[in-house]
Structure formats: structure tokens, C-alpha cells
Write a protein that binds this DNA or RNA. Structure first.
Length: 554
DNA sequence: TTAGGGTTAG
């Protein structure tokens, strides 16, 4: 039927379409009565989506009477590509009720959407639908499933899917290797890498990235060097992704010289490889070198993005080094990054950690646009510096302005209450967090609550709160309790906390030393002697403390 | 006589 229009569409797909051209094409299909044909409607929906005109795409979709599976897929994909995963999923549910049944392309898109919105329930439901549609062995669906499950930390489910496929293709092998990496099981990834080679499957760049990005812990450095050698011999180091993951791996394993060598082998270093190197230096604590690389990157015309800037700002915060902090602040202002959510909050956090609370507040007040993350930073900043009532005022302010507080907000709020000794307020916020905002208390929240109650001398209450936790308390929660027992000289609760802590970390002497200090404060020298002797008998010694200060004149 | 797609790096 209308060959010329069909050719025009194909040509249009290959060219660089604009919104205006899409609208003209749309008009053309209307005048030639071709919008009834799902082929043309599908194409137009895709063009609208490419040009960020989701609304027009959806209107066209609504007006398309004979929707084919392609039509459904194009609108679902359009929403997914624009990160509107809820919309994508709800269209998928509508599709299930329609005449048109989803195919492997629909499922691949939906699985990714479930992963992106970290929705395990929907993911399992989609998996079920996929089995019903007899698509479980489909190559596209299986790799998308392995990917989705492992990215959400469900490595067993990912393995089950992988093991259910008789002859996995390269993409599926890669998805599983990468899946192990994202679940921090690098040894399993390495095993799978050997297995695939044993089966005669040749790895590609994706496989190597999967193996390399999983490696962690100093013991894996030798293995990393081996994989690097393999990549060099097999020619994978020409791949920019492989090089970046190598730079990042060497940085992670504290081998900054090797990281720099791999970086230097990049003929045209891109932003990712620059970021891998700079972030590596920042994390390695060599901030001056990191900053000089950052300057070099700018001189070479490579523009930083907000992710890199935020990570350098976090480095300045960690080292509490105010000079580089000011330099970075200048950079942020010169290049207009202040409107970014991550950069703004990283800047506030940095000044807070450097001890400049007033500058942090100034930055907050100067921001044109504020986000939940910005509020979290400033509340935490004020809390850290003992300005609890200002912190709580800002919390109320963010609620009034319609922001929805998250886990971190309540962490900062409870921290403010804890440092400010506001026991009743803290208890009330803890309750509201769970009941009003439906946020589950995390270990960090419990640490603040234990500190809040414990520092006020309510040690039994703090201990009872720990007993009500849904999971086992970690060293943070128990350590908070023990430190409060030291302050109040409570040997009874302190003894329980200390023994629980020593059971978790037998090598850590601090817990026994703290208990010994409680006994000493009570002049209970007999128990001090027993405890110290038991430490000597076990061959344990106290680790010396360490602190530093920046010398402006040095 | 049509059209989409699944796995990578900071």
C-alpha cells in the first residue's frame, strides 16, 4: 500500500529526526488515512519519544485503534527510556488485559523497569508472566532476568535462571559474570569465567568488565594483574570500558601506580577513565594529586560532570582540607554546577566536615533550587555542630514545602536530637518516621536512638529498644550502647554490650578496654585485673589511637 | 511487506 510513505519512514528512521519533522510526518499520515495502520502509529510513537514528546506519543497511542504488539512495546519502551517506570509498568498491566499478548521484547523492557525502580515484587510477578507465556528459555528474556535479579541482590534467583538454560549464549554468560560482580561474589564470577572458556565460549569486552569490576580485597590484586595480563594479550585493553574498569580496580586495591599506568595507555582518555583515576586518588587519600589531575583534565578540555565533582568534594570533606575545598567551590560557581542536587549537598557537607558551619548555611541559603538531599545535608550539618533546634526547624520547613523526607533525613533528625539531648522529640520523630512516613528503621536510626536514650542515662530503655529490633544489632548499635555505659559507669548493661561485641569481633580489644574503664571508674580493681589478664592471655593488645590536624603554615 | 531487543566502565 503506500510504498512512498513506507520508504519515507525508513529513511526518516535512519536520519536525525526532529520534533517538527515528526509532527509533519504525523500530519501526512493523518491526511493519507494511514494512522489506522499500527505500523505507522508505532513508528511515530517512537519518533515522538526520541524527541522527548511523551505526551504526544501517548495521545497517538490512545488514538490508535488496532494496536499491535509493536505499538504496545513502543509506548512502554518510551516511558521506560524516560525513567517513568511506574507508567511503563501500568501500561504493561493494561496490555495484559488487552487482546495483545506481551512478547519477549515487552518482557525485556518490563524486567529492566522493575530493576530500575527496585521493585522485587513486580519483578517476580513479571517472571511469573514470562513463564506463563513460555518465554523463560528465550535468550533476550533470560539475560534480562539474570541481570534484573542480580542487580537487586537476588543472586540465587539469577543463578536458577542461568542454570535453567541449556546452551547459554555469550550475553547470558556475561550477564551472570556481571551479576556475581554486582553481588560482590568475584570468586564465583572468576569460576564462571573459567567455566565458559572451558566450554569453548570466547569472552568479549563485557565479560572482562564483569570479571574486573567484581575484584575486591587486597588478596585479589594478584588475580587482577593476571586478568589484566590476559586482557593485554587478547587485545581487550583497546576497549575503553575494560580500561576504565582496570583503572578503577587498581585504585580500589590501593595500587595507584598501576591505575595511573593503565590510564596513561588511553590514547584519548574519556570522562569515565579520568573519573576512575581521580576518584581512585581521592579515595586513596592523596587529595593534592587528585586535584592536580582534576586541573589537568580541565586543561585538556574534558569537562567534569556532577558525579565527579561530588566525589572530589566528598574527598575534601573526608580530609577536612579547607584550601582545596575552597578551590572546588570556586570551580562549582564558575561552571554553574550549583543547581545540581548532588553538588549542592556535597558542598554543604564538605564545609560542615571542614568545621565551617556558617559557610555551609550560606551555601544552603544561596541555592535557587533545593532537593531532599540538600535538606538532608544542611540538617546533618547543623546537627553535627550542636544546633539541634535550627536543624529541626529546617526539617519542619521542608515538610511545609512539600518535600518527602527519606531514610537519610530521619538519620540527620535523630542525630540532631541525640546530640542535643532532646529525648522526647527524638522518640516522637522515631515514631513518626515509622507510622507517618512508612520508613523502616535502619541500623543507623537505631544507633542514634540508642545514643539518645543512653546519653540521657536511660540505659535499660536503650537496651530494651535493641531487643525490639527486627534483626540482630551490629557493632555500631552495641558500640553506641557501650560508650553510653562508659559515660554513666553502668557495669551491668556495659558487661552485656561488651561481651556481645567481643563475640562479633574477637580481635577488637577496644570493647574489653572500655568495660575495664567502667570497672576502674567504680574502683572495682578486681574485675579490672581479671579482664586485663584475660586479654594478655589471649595475646591481645590495645590499638593505639590516631588523629591529625591541618597546619596552615606548612 | 514493513517494525523493536537482552549483557559493560567512573
Amino acid at each position: 500500500m503506500c510504498n512512498w510513505l513506507s520508504s519515507l519512514l525508513v529513511e526518516f528512521s535512519r536520519s536525525h529526526q526532529t520534533l517538527r519533522a515528526t509532527k509533519q510526518l504525523h500530519a501526512l499520515t493523518v491526511t493519507t488515512h494511514l494512522t489506522q495502520d499500527p505500523f505507522y502509529a508505532t513508528k511515530l510513537i517512537r519518533f515522538y519519544a526520541i524527541n522527548n514528546a511523551l505526551h504526544s506519543a501517548h495521545i497517538l497511542f490512545d488514538k490508535t485503534p488496532n494496536r499491535s504488539v509493536y505499538t504496545w512495546n513502543s509506548i512502554i519502551r518510551a516511558y521506560a527510556q524516560h525513567h517513568q517506570f511506574d507508567h511503563a509498568y501500568s501500561l504493561f498491566k493494561q496490555m495484559l488485559c488487552s487482546q495483545c499478548k506481551p512478547d519477549n521484547y515487552t518482557f525485556s523492557c518490563i524486567l529492566r523497569a522493575c530493576m530500575e525502580k527496585t521493585d522485587v515484587t513486580s519483578l517476580r510477578a513479571a517472571h511469573g508472566g514470562l513463564i506463563v507465556s513460555d518465554l523463560e528459555s528465550d535468550s533476550i528474556c533470560s539475560s534480562a532476568l539474570v541481570n534484573a535479579y542480580s542487580k537487586l541482590g537476588l543472586v540465587h534467583e539469577a543463578c536458577e535462571v542461568f542454570n535453567g538454560i541449556v546452551e547459554p549464549d555469550l550475553v547470558l554468560w556475561n550477564a551472570m559474570v556481571m551479576g556475581y560482580a554486582s553481588c560482590r561474589l568475584w570468586h564465583k564470577g572468576l569460576e564462571l569465567f573459567s567455566k565458559m572458556r572451558h566450554f569453548g565460549v570466547n569472552p568479549d569486552g563485557y565479560t572482562l568488565v564483569g570479571v574486573i569490576s567484581g575484584l575486591d580485597g587486597t588478596s585479589s590484586l594478584v588475580i587482577g594483574e593476571g586478568v589484566h595480563g590476559f586482557s593485554l594479550k587478547a587485545g581487550f585493553c583497546a576497549n575503553a570500558h575494560v580500561r576504565s574498569s582496570l583503572v578503577s580496580m587498581y585504585s580500589r586495591l590501593n595500587s595507584l601506580n598501576s591505575a595511573y599506568k593503565v590510564f596513561s595507555s588511553s590514547p584519548w582518555p574519556d570522562l569515565v577513565v579520568w573519573s576512575a583515576l581521580i576518584t581512585g586518588f581521592v579515595d586513596g587519600g592523596v587529595l593534592e594529586e587528585a586535584l592536580s589531575l582534576f586541573r589537568e583534565m580541565n586543561l585538556q578540555g574534558q569537562r567534569a560532570d556532577s558525579l565527579l565533582i561530588a566525589s572530589v568534594l566528598a574527598g575534601c570533606a573526608r580530609l577536612a582540607a579547607v584550601r582545596p575545598a575552597k578551590e572546588m567551590h570556586g570551580f562549582v560557581l564558575r561552571f554553574g554546577y550549583l543547581s545540581d542536587a548532588m553538588v549542592g549537598s556535597a558542598l554543604i557537607n564538605m564545609y560542615s566536615k571542614c568545621g565551617y558551619v556558617a559557610v555551609g548555611v550560606q551555601v544552603f541559603e544561596s541555592l535557587q533550587e533545593r532537593y531532599v538531599a540538600t535538606y538532608n545535608s544542611i540538617i546533618s550539618c547543623l546537627a553535627t555542630h550542636g544546633l539541634a533546634s535550627d536543624a529541626l526547624k529546617l526539617f519542619e520547613d521542608m515538610l511545609e514545602k512539600g518535600f518527602k523526607p527519606d531514610q537519610s533525613t530521619f538519620s540527620a533528625v535523630l542525630y540532631a536530637c541525640s546530640l542535643g539531648g532532646l529525648v522526647e522529640d527524638g522518640q516522637e520523630y522515631f515514631r513518626r518516621m515509622k507510622e507517618e512516613f512508612d520508613i523502616q528503621a535502619s541500623l543507623e536510626h537505631y544507633v542514634h536512638m540508642v545514643k539518645l536514650l543512653g546519653m540521657a542515662g536511660q540505659l535499660e530503655l536503650a537496651y530494651n529498644l535493641i531487643q525490639t529490633m527486627p534483626g540482630p544489632p551490629d557493632t555500631g548499635v552495641l558500640g553506641a550502647l557501650l560508650s553510653c555505659c562508659v559515660v554513666h559507669g553502668n557495669a551491668e548493661v556495659g558487661g552485656i554490650a561488651s561481651s556481645k561485641l567481643s563475640a562479633i569481633e574477637p580481635e577488637n580489644t577496644a570493647y574489653r578496654v572500655m568495660l575495664s574503664n567502667i570497672y576502674a571508674s567504680k574502683e572495682n580493681w578486681e574485675d579490672v585485673k581479671i579482664l586485663r589478664e584475660s586479654m594478655v592471655a589471649a595475646g591481645l593488645r590495645k590499638t593505639p589511637g590516631l588523629s591529625w590536624i591541618e597546619d596552615n603554615n606548612a
